[in-house]
């Protein structure tokens, strides 16, 4: 929005034409977070959708159960996120038609999503994609992507608006970065261990309520999808709406 200012700005001779080009992208805010446990994985996202300083809606889910116990989110430019997830869902359906209903394992899903993203390398999906599920051994898995398909399996990953706020917290709390055994004078690192589901849920809620405090694009509600060997379930917690 332009502010009206008393000036002779409009009368000024423009040496360069004002460029008014259609920008096919926008930033719809929001933040997402995935954590893998020993026999579970969670993917969480806030439910606020924004543009500029306007909160467009306080409840627009962006983490989805896409089938075969895989959960997926694509955070950033909302229209691209929806398009990417729709395309993956469809391809998963064809995969099932072509392979007699065989379950797609998360490793293959991950590679396939790379191709979906890289296929638009020169007009990218402007999103940070994360998927979560269980691998062939039943262990929790989180895969995360950059907008053009570079990907990696990780223990945890935050994406979107408040990624830079949440990720260091996760490094410390999930991978025990900069944590040392007491009394070893910083010589012995704290041993890694899998977190329990309750611990992870607490971490996720803390991460989001803190991000809500510090980032204007985060808030309103937290929707959490959890994959265990029993399947996918959803939880919702309200966040501050200011």
């Amino acid at each position: 929005m332009r502010t009206t200012v008393a000036s002779e700005y409009s009368a000024e001779v423009h040496h360069v034409p004002i460029e008014h080009r259609f920008n096919p992208y926008s930033d719809n805010g929001g933040t997402v977070l995935g954590i893998a446990g020993e026999d579970f994985a969670v993917l969480a996202g806030d439910t606020r959708q924004v543009e500029g300083y306007s909160i467009h809606t306080r409840y627009q889910p962006k983490v989805f159960d896409v089938g075969d116990d895989i959960i997926m989110t694509a955070n950033g430019f909302a229209a691209d996120g929806v398009a990417l997830i729709d395309r993956f869902r469809n391809q998963l359906k064809w995969y099932k038609f072509d392979h007699g209903g065989k379950k797609l394992n998360i490793k293959s899903a991950a590679r396939y999503i790379q191709h979906l993203l890289y296929g638009k390398r020169f007009f990218p999906y402007y999103v940070h994609t994360i998927i979560a599920g269980l691998d062939e051994d039943g262990k929790g898995a989180v895969y995360s992507y950059d907008p053009v398909g570079s990907y990696e399996r990780e223990q945890c990953r935050a994406g979107g608006a408040a990624a830079s706020l949440i990720m260091p917290f996760l490094d410390n709390q999930v991978n025990f970065k900069n944590q040392y055994e007491p009394g070893t004078d910083g010589k012995k690192k704290k041993d890694l261990r899998y977190l329990k589901l309750e611990e992870v849920l607490e971490l996720v809620r803390d991460a989001f309520s803190s991000a809500t405090e510090r980032h204007i694009y985060v808030g309103d509600g937290l929707e959490l999808l959890i994959v265990t060997k029993e399947g996918v379930r959803t939880e919702y917690y309200p966040l501050k709406r200011d």
């Binding site: 992208y25 926008s26 719809n28 467009h56 306080r58 627009q60 909302a78 229209a79 929806v82």
Partner: peptide
């Protein structure tokens, strides 16, 4: 809602 970018949301 839907706009020229294809961004959608409900409320």
């Amino acid at each position: 809602y839907v706009d020229l970018l294809g961004v959608t949301y409900g409320s």
